[in-house]
Design a binder for these strands. Structure first.
Length: 347
DNA sequence: TCTTATGATTTCCC
DNA sequence: GGGAAATCATAAGA
């Protein structure tokens, strides 16, 4: 108040401690007294004009005019903005710096991996191709299943992107609307640009939550499609003859320890054009069935032993030894249980 | 159509 | 988690 009085006095005259205007002396800087009289007359005229208007209109206009034109407005708003910043906004500020949502990251990663989000790089179709290749053991697969999967995935992708665009558009429109509104309001109440930015962030967060729901339901749709597709893969297909030969060769040449290492499985999978888990399945089945039907297995072993021996003669090498297995240790065909003994050997 | 072979899945155990 | 064993589901052949 003191400052205000002092400031006023600089313009209109000197005041005493009670705020009364003191007699003014012409010091060479002050306005002439007849000019002041003119101003007072103008003010009175304005007051008289106001009384002719409706009270509300006058108040509104007066307030607006006073607020917008008052030379103290920027300073006052600045102070008020600062106070707001230090109180309400500081609370929000502490909540803003959150780490990225891991669930959202998972969803994003999955959508990218499935080829739904991100650049269209044939993710879905390649996934389908891999899946069918795995199921068919390298044999040509049903193109119908493949194209069905691809078409449905493309549908999901299209819906996802359409919805995403809608959300983004709505978000942008709403944000623009709110920003404009706040900017308009900032003429009559203290709203700092930072506060507007925060409001934008809040709006974007709200829309991000909606977006996450969209991503979740898209992931669900992909999962359902995938499971249906995988169910279709359950249709068993025999491995190629060449693949079976390779697997049998390895099995019978490692009869004392028919447990291929991970490296060996990978190598076999690569050579046979199947997956590592298919190799594992095959060896699991083979070990069990070998034990169950030892007579027939021995005949088979005999065939592969002969084959391998012929190959060794031709190459003069130890033959198959993937991943450090014990090549060349064939079972004794005259005595079914006379294979090389080890902890893992088949009894 | 029935049987057998075989790849995949499930359950249990270590 | 990997392997054994049981089981399922389907391909293939008689």
């Amino acid at each position: 108040m003191e400052d205000g009085q002092r400031m006023y006095s600089q313009q209109g005259g000197l005041t005493n401690m009670s705020g009364n205007v003191l007699p003014q002396y012409n010091m060479g800087q002050d306005e002439p007294s007849d000019q002041r009289k003119q101003e007072i007359g103008d003010i009175l005229q304005q007051i008289m004009t106001i009384t002719d208007q409706s009270l509300d209109e006058a108040q509104a206009r007066c307030r607006k005019h006073t607020l917008n034109c008052h030379r103290m407005k920027p300073a006052l708003f600045s102070v008020l903005c600062e106070i707001k910043e230090k109180t309400v906004l500081s609370i929000r500020n502490s909540q803003e710096e959150e780490p990225p949502d891991p669930q959202l990251m998972r969803l994003d990663n999955m959508l990218i991996a499935e080829g739904v989000a991100g650049p269209e790089k044939g993710g879905g179709s390649s996934a389908a191709a891999n899946a069918t290749a795995a199921a068919s053991g390298g044999q040509p697969d049903s193109a119908i299943e493949h194209s069905d999967y691809r078409a449905k995935l493309a549908q999901i992708r299209q819906i996802y992107h359409t919805e995403l665009e809608k959300y983004e558009q709505a978000c942008n429109e709403f944000t623009t609307h709110v920003v404009n509104l706040l900017r308009e309001q900032s003429r009559t109440r203290p709203i700092a640009p930072k506060e507007i930015e925060r409001m934008v962030t809040i709006i974007r967060k709200k829309f991000a939550a909606i977006e996450m729901q969209l991503k979740q339901s898209t992931c669900e749709a992909v999962m359902i499609l995938r499971s249906r597709f995988l169910d279709a893969r359950r249709k068993r297909r025999n491995f190629s003859k060449q693949a079976t030969e390779l697997l049998n060769e390895y099995f019978y040449s490692h009869l004392s320890n028919p447990y291929p290492s991970e490296e060996a499985k990978e190598e076999l999978a690569r050579k046979c054009g199947i997956t590592v888990s298919q190799v594992s399945n095959w060896f699991g089945n083979k070990r069990i069935r070998y034990k169950k039907n030892i007579t027939k297995a021995q005949e088979e072993a005999n065939v592969y032993a002969a084959k391998s021996a012929a190959a060794h003669e031709g190459q003069g090498a130890a033959g198959y030894n993937v991943g450090g297995g014990q090549a060349g240790m064939y079972m004794n065909l005259n005595g079914g249980d006379n294979y090389q003994s080890s902890d893992n050997s088949l009894q």
